[in-house]
Write a protein that binds this DNA or RNA. Structure first.
Length: 471
RNA sequence: GCUCGUAUAGUGUAGUGGCCCAUCAUGAAGCCCUCUCGAGGCUUCGACCCGGGUUCAAAUCCCGGUACGAGCACCA
């Protein structure tokens, strides 16, 4: 009996409603800090589609909030670098929202002119009562002229102050979903923006700014977290007012990586300021710079996210899944090296080759490593005082007497160092930084080389020691 | 409370009515190879949330239940 082999879809699912067009995708972080692991999903998914379908990836800085999550100037420079590192190509366009404010103002005014927006002077608390009670606020029925006048008052420093008035999109106060009822589109902020200072007073909120910008840029597909589902619905209502067609939208669910815990950009910023972490590159942090420093390869990150796919399911994945992809990326080019922790000296008695070479990598043609022994070697304390096989050298008994050059039995094979240099291996485990002292085999690999420490795992050579990649 | 969404092995994932006693990866266990607890090869383990309905036929469609998650900000 023959059974047909089931066809399994490889990679990302097909993009819906492509209709032969090249997709225009975007990834829009808030530049209030460097990119982190969480951002990498959006970058990878949007980037892979843009690359595979010969479309375009827009990198957009949604930096219209100067109060709650104010922008950080260095992020404007670091984010494009991190984006290119991760995606493997630079974004086709970079859009900075704070420099396109005149467009948002233009469409805000069109909204008022068209009678589908209004300036609301109710307090947030008062409006909440209307939202919950499905009642209309008094500002809703004001004339277009009244609204235009109030709009200019919002923009006038001598008139409305922050909190006095917001611009709202007129939807329907009896909509089933409370989130959609006359949602806010813009508000007054007087904190200076790091890029454009106090040039603007009325700033758009995400749902409005993003919607207008997606339209202006001709975005065809929006792929984002399902927490933004209501954003889509709000923006679709706005698009209907303008007579635009909303892009195809796809969502992914929440991802929890247990080892990373709950890091937020603002929390990390505080912890770094308090000295809890050494900086954005601290190997304990889930930032892209830290991951890169720790030897995580961009292709591993890409394979990881593509494999998780685009389901709306909430998932929890262990970091070991990412590590498994990373091993595939680094093993083939990682030279082997010995690092002896808790070094214990063993004097060798008997005949054995005092000089020789050992393979650097059993599956590649890497130049072999040389060793030279005076009278003994270092082994790990845990391996001492029992018969062992010194890897690639000889069998010895518990006292260091050489028993055989060839492997004679199934005794454990142990790594060792002759000479060597004392070094340290730093291991980031959760919130802790563990340092292990040891002796590293002499080598000429440059800083930044990812090596495999035999019987320990992968590590990256740094100026002052070794940083554990993963095992 | 209201609204929206999701539910396949330990963890992820494929699968849109019959090729499914369910795919692939990861994980665990074991074997082979290898002078690493690495890499590679092989074997084994292990799942369609529950209850109804539609149908000749349901993991797949419909309805309830349950669980989990998200939104209801003058944050993104």
């Amino acid at each position: 009996m023959e059974r047909k082999v089931q066809t399994r879809r490889e990679g990302l699912p097909e993009l819906p409603n492509l209709n032969g067009q090249k997709p225009i995708l975007r990834f829009a972080p808030n530049p209030n800090g460097p990119l982190s692991f969480g951002h990498s999903r959006g970058l990878v998914i949007n980037g892979e589609y843009a690359k595979d379908l010969d479309g375009e990836l827009i990198l957009r800085f949604d930096d219209t909030d100067t109060t709650v999550k104010p922008p950080m100037m260095e992020a404007y420079d670091s984010i494009p670098i991190q984006q290119e590192w991760l995606c493997g190509f630079p974004a086709h366009r970079i859009v900075i929202a704070s420099e396109r404010m005149e467009h948002y103002h233009e469409y805000a005014k069109k909204m008022l002119d068209g009678g589908f927006g209004y300036v609301c002077t109710c307090s947030a608390e008062d409006f909440k009562v209307h939202r919950v009670g499905m009642t209309e606020c008094p500002c809703r029925d004001n004339s277009i002229d009244e609204n235009l006048e109030r709009w200019s008052k919002m923009n006038d420093p001598k008139e409305y102050q922050p909190g006095d008035a917001v611009l709202r999109v007129k939807t329907d106060m009896t909509l089933k979903n409370p989130a959609l009822r006359d949602w806010p589109a813009a508000r007054i902020q007087t904190n200076p923006h790091p890029r454009v200072g106090n040039r603007w007073r009325v700033w758009p909120l995400l749902d409005f700014q993003s919607a207008v910008e997606d339209y202006l840029q001709g975005v065809t597909h929006i792929i984002r977290g399902k927490d933004l589902m209501d954003s889509t619905r709000k923006q679709t209502l706005l698009y209907a007012h303008f007579g635009w067609e909303y892009p195809e939208t796809i969502y992914w669910g929440r991802v929890k990586v247990h080892e990373f815990g709950a890091f937020s950009t603002s929390q990390m910023k505080r912890d770094i300021a308090e000295g809890k972490f050494s900086g954005w590159e601290d190997p304990r942090l889930p930032t892209l710079t830290a991951l890169s420093r720790r030897g995580i390869q961009p292709e591993a990150l890409r394979a990881f996210w593509v494999e998780l796919g685009l389901t709306q399911k909430d998932i929890a994945v262990p970091l070991s899944t990412l590590y498994s992809h990373n091993t595939k990326a680094i093993d083939i080019k990682a030279p082997r090296l010995s690092f002896v922790r808790n070094a214990f000296p063993v004097v060798l008695n008997g005949e054995y080759p005092k000089e020789g070479t050992i393979q650097s990598h059993s599956d590649t043609e890497m130049p072999p490593r040389k060793y030279s022994i005076d009278e003994g070697v270092w082994i790990e304390k845990e391996d001492s005082s029992k018969p062992i096989r010194l890897k690639d050298l000889c069998d010895i008994d518990a006292d260091g007497n050489v028993e055989s050059i060839d492997r004679s039995d199934k005794r454990p094979v142990v790594h060792w160092v002759a000479g060597g240099t004392s070094s340290k291996l730093v291991i980031a485990s959760g919130q802790d930084l563990e340092t292990v002292e040891g002796i590293l085999e002499d080598n000429t690999h440059p800083v930044g080389t990812i090596v495999q420490l035999e019987r320990i795992g992968y590590a990256i050579l740094e100026e002052d020691g070794l940083l554990m990649v993963h095992d």
